[in-house]
Amino acid sequence: MTAALIAALVTGAALFGVGLYGALSQTNLVMIMMGVELILAGALVNLAAFWRFLHPGAYAGQMFVLIVMTVMALEMAVGFGVATARFRAKGSVEMEEAGELKG
């Protein structure tokens, strides 16, 4: 039984690692968002696994998963809003060309 939990957590960790790599290595805003989505997906897997295998009576765990899904949708909405604005203004959503956004 613990094996199932570990399998899920390992998946979560791997998704987190892949997502982190993607978010850091990609030059394009949309691709970076994909990396962030994968990181959040890793979190989702972990949360669901914790709920199922450790506290199936506490529905706040499932609630948490719902909230993370909401955050994913939020990230998409805001990200695409920003991407559209950037693209309109600069014709590019490449990070290499967003130098003026540096502090």
Partner: peptide
């Protein structure tokens, strides 16, 4: 860009999460 750094970060981040996942005593499973 910054490929090497990203791979390292990804590996370290994922590895750390993995270590926590494997090494933590999760206690009884329902």
């Amino acid at each position: 860009h910054q490929k090497r750094f990203s791979i390292a970060a990804g590996a370290i981040g994922g590895g750390a999460a993995l270590a926590v996942a494997v090494l933590t005593p999760w206690g009884p499973v329902v």
